[in-house]
């Protein structure tokens, strides 16, 4: 049965949206069936304080190993290309040298939870993907063909992440990800 939506507790600071925290780890074996099956919801939250209670109990991204992702998405949106909120959307992709993942992930989710992107309902969620040689940060939005919105998201990302000037940022539509089935 669906769990009841979280509510801010007494004295807590509400967020604009409720969110869900997800975890996934690539399994050996059946590649096509595994993505959805490997997604695990860690928990949902509605306030700043509830967010920190989850965050403080999970490993920092840089301490994870193997092929592991954290996903932080608005409640009701599954972190999948095919979800109705994502199917016309896309994502900004930022490839990080090893060692930067924890700091950049934290900066990204602070900006998302604090509504710093100023693009209305467009933000769907954020992902940090831990890989062998590099880590990958991505921010998903609803409407891939809205150039004004995607440019505004890019500019805010640059500001809040405080990345080296030569960092490459790439935008990819989920339609293209579905076509080539090899996002990273």
């Amino acid at each position: 049965p669906p769990r009841p939506p979280p509510k801010p507790g007494p004295g807590e600071h509400p967020l604009q949206y409720n969110y869900g925290f997800w975890y996934s780890r690539k399994s050996q074996g059946n590649k096509s069936a595994s993505y959805d099956a490997n997604l695990k919801l860690i928990g949902t939250f509605a306030s700043v304080e509830q967010f920190w209670r989850h965050y403080c109990h999970i490993a920092r991204p840089s301490d994870l190993n193997g092929h592991t992702d954290y996903h932080l998405f608005k409640e009701g949106i599954r972190p999948m290309w095919e979800d109705s909120a994502n199917k016309n959307g896309g994502k900004w992709i930022i490839r990080l040298k090893k060692g930067l993942a924890s700091r950049c992930w934290e900066n990204l989710i602070m900006a998302m939870l604090g509504e710093q992107f100023m693009v209305g309902e467009e933000i769907c969620g954020a992902v940090i993907s831990i890989r062998y040689a590099e880590d990958i940060l991505s921010l998903w939005n609803r409407t891939a063909n809205d150039g004004v919105t995607t440019a505004r998201i890019r500019d805010t990302l640059k500001r809040v992440l405080n990345l080296p000037p030569n960092t490459v940022m790439e935008y990819k539509t989920h339609v293209d990800s579905i076509k080539d089935n090899s996002s990273f």
Binding site: Q16, V48, E49, W52, L113, G114, E115, Q116
Partner: peptide
């Protein structure tokens, strides 16, 4: 309605609140 904005520094301060433990 009005949106709820938080600056990074404020969110980081909330991490130390007893309510966040």
């Amino acid at each position: 309605g009005s949106r709820i904005f938080y600056e990074r520094n404020f969110l980081m301060q909330c991490r130390n609140s007893p309510l966040a433990k």
